[in-house]
């Protein structure tokens, strides 16, 4: 069953011109079904339109054409209380962990914001609930009163994940959640996401350009190339085994930055 469905999405940005404004197409003919309980990965190189598609799924950027159906409702036609209820089930973790938190708020205030919006927990139990969330993501009660600048990048990303979890959503869009982290933290966050997915029965949309990370976390891989979905794989094994052009191109072009074996020319 699909939790989120994109139907024939097209999106373009207005290019400002003096005489004739031009439309710069970013996405074209995108139809996707995000199955419940899976990690759906959108894989593509920079500039392929991954984040734009992510924003469209999140309901914060109206597509030029097409519909987004979340939990059976059109996300861009829902208003007022309906929209608020839909938003509750759809949360996000952005790439840049530092810019995703208000520098003037403590960790507790940051995580409390969504809770206050929906009166999720009683005022008296709030601190306990937030502490529990922090512990879920590997932080502790000591971190409640700290400000963003006192955390490392990996810790901040954990706070962002805790905030996304606070409302117990059904779907989380992970927009390059590990790209600004070092190798060790990348692995730790991937493991954390994997564990949380099972504990909270979440569905992920994982947006990334990192093939290794995609292989670790994904159930379903879709390749986005120049604004269109070119290939889809329902298992990681299929993706790895594939020799089709897009997958192959991605694998070679992205992995080329980290050559696994070097051929050393023999001296004459």
């Amino acid at each position: 069953m699909a939790i989120l469905t994109l139907t024939d999405i097209a999106h373009s940005y207005q290019k400002k011109g003096l005489f004739q404004p031009k439309q710069a197409p970013v996405l074209e003919h995108i139809s996707l079904n995000i199955p419940v309980g899976q990690c759906f990965t959108l894989l593509g190189v920079s500039g392929a339109g991954k984040s734009t598609l992510g924003n469209i799924m999140l309901g914060i950027e109206r597509p030029t054409r097409g519909t987004v159906t979340f939990l059976g409702q059109n996300l861009y036609e829902a208003k007022g209380a309906t929209l608020k209820q839909l938003r509750r089930e759809l949360q996000v973790v952005f790439q840049d962990s530092l810019s995703a938190v208000d520098p003037r708020m403590t960790a507790e205030q940051i995580i409390a914001e969504p809770l206050d919006n929906y009166q999720m927990v009683a005022q008296a139990d709030k601190r306990a609930y937030i502490t529990e969330l922090l512990e879920q993501v590997g932080l502790s009660a000591d971190d409640l009163t700290k400000y963003p600048r006192q955390f490392s990048g990996g810790q901040l990303q954990r706070i962002n994940i805790a905030r996304a979890l606070a409302l117990k959503p059904k779907l989380i869009v992970l927009d390059e959640p590990i790209s600004s982290l070092d190798m060790v933290n990348q692995r730790l966050i991937i493991d954390l996401l994997q564990r949380l997915k099972e504990d909270f029965q979440l569905t992920y949309v994982f947006i990334t350009h990192d093939i290794k990370a995609a292989c670790l976390l994904s159930d379903h891989i879709a390749i986005l190339e120049a604004g269109t979905i070119t290939e889809q794989y329902t298992t990681v094994a299929d993706f790895i085994a594939s020799t089709k052009s897009a997958a192959h191109h991605l694998k070679t072009s992205l992995l080329a930055e980290h050559p696994m074996k070097r051929t050393i020319r023999s001296l004459p």
């Binding site: 914060i60 938003r87 509750r88 996000v92 810019s99 969504p114 919006n117 409302l167």
Partner: peptide, 22 residues
């Protein structure tokens, strides 16, 4: 354009609250 304003919208804060708090 800061992400925390986007996140605030996504996690249900009203425009008024975003202006007042962020």
């Amino acid at each position: 354009t800061e992400n925390y304003v986007k996140v605030a919208r996504i996690n249900g804060s009203s425009s008024f609250k975003i202006i007042r708090k962020h």
